[in-house]
Design a protein around this nucleic acid. Structure first.
Lengths: 233, 233
DNA sequence: CAGTGGTCTAGACCACTCA
DNA sequence: GAGTGGTCTAGACCACTGC
């Protein structure tokens, strides 16, 4: 069996965490500074620092130079969501991934898209619509705009063979990413593509990526009925 | 102006990141081990370690003892979502928060809820429905079950004065949290509460929390039309 | 079993920010 | 200005895990 290290930073973190849980340190309270904490707990300051770093990242405490460390008065729930390549997402469910290119056209972006990408409306873009399948059933609809100035190479990629999602993830690393989650009602086209009826409530994710300040792509993915995203701490 | 520290761990991280972006290190490639990296970059091993920790957390590289550090072949998008207290969420939008308790009843949990909480169906629970308002308009509907064995004290709290959301966040710290995001169609009750029409597509979040292995609460929050969740890296 | 990342220590100095 | 967290270093040892 695994013996928990008595003075590992995880152990130190858990001991501090426990003090917060049992109200030794209450919301808003100031914690002893690292040096004292280290002496009390019998470890070096760096170990306390590492523990505090973790507690701070998870939103449990707040640290400020000179201000000290405080238990957050209004804790926030912080969850990390992982969004993999769609093919991998399907395969991880143990299902067979399929893919259909629905349309592909070089077009100037409509105003809404240009705004979303923080891009001038005169830049040439590629508009791609596609459908991802799981076990031959509709899984996710993808409506994507790609900036041809940034990702010029995709113009010569056969998007029937590889999805834009996969090509971009593998070939266009980004430095900034924005996400929005919301619900929308299926219109006629969407309903047809996803084999459902118009007006069905569907889950949508909008993702826009940039490399430095140059927009790469913005995509709206819409899940088939029942699609959901989960996360846990 | 701020001079970027030439050998800070962030600087080291960015220099390694740049090498990944410019394809010096390609997806799947093995990176030099920390010691070499440190020597090459002119810093100590701990600094490389700190940089790598960050790159690893953000999903860009994968590290394994003896295996070494590799650029992830199929990068995942990792985003951290913060979910604050609802009152604070509204106030941060610069709006006035309001709150109405719709119902409150001690009941045994239905099977679906018991399953969600990993709880026996015989444990006494409190069922609470409430509506959060922003500028006196419906903002978020909350349908919550609370385990009265874990959070017994809430039985004597006046939930007209403080929302269950707020009381729980302030008084019941948790050690585990699971989240699901999805879309649903408004039924008659929901439509009425949120001042919308039946069948409207709405965005829902389900959250369940435990302390150690004991379930605390499970809640489904449903946003008024237009509600959305956003995140960025 | 040996290579690699993970952690701990002690000490020094830096950077921010509150009073 | 002084207190507190943030970072860097050098060195040691530990803990996984691939070969």
């Amino acid at each position: 069996m695994t013996t928990p290290q008595r003075h590992s930073w995880k152990d130190i973190r858990d001991r501090i965490h426990a003090r917060i849980l049992d109200r030794t340190y209450r919301p808003g309270d100031k914690l002893p500074h690292d040096e004292d904490m280290a002496q009390t707990l019998g470890c070096s300051r760096s170990t306390v620092q590492r523990a505090m770093q973790d507690l701070s990242e998870s939103g449990l405490v707040e640290r400020r130079r000179k201000g000290g460390t405080h238990v957050r008065p209004e804790p926030v729930a912080r969850v990390t969501i992982e969004i993999p390549i769609i093919r991998k997402e399907v395969e991880d469910l143990g299902q067979r991934h399929g893919y259909q290119l629905l349309s592909r056209a070089a077009l100037p972006p409509p105003a809404e898209i240009a705004t979303r990408m923080e891009l001038s409306a005169h830049v040439p873009c590629l508009h791609v619509r596609a459908l991802h399948l799981a076990q031959d059933r509709p899984y996710l609809y993808e409506d994507r705009w790609i900036n041809l100035q940034t990702a010029a190479e995709i113009d010569s990629v056969d998007l029937c063979t590889i999805s834009a999602n996969e090509w971009l993830v593998l070939n266009m690393p980004y430095t900034r990413c924005e996400l929005r989650f919301f619900a929308l009602a299926a219109d006629a086209d969407l309903a047809k593509a996803l084999h459902t009826s118009p007006n069905t409530a569907l889950f949508a994710i909008e993702r826009t990526t940039w490399i430095d300040t140059q927009p790469i792509t913005t995509v709206r993915t819409i899940g088939a009925p029942g699609y959901q995203l989960s996360a846990s701490t």
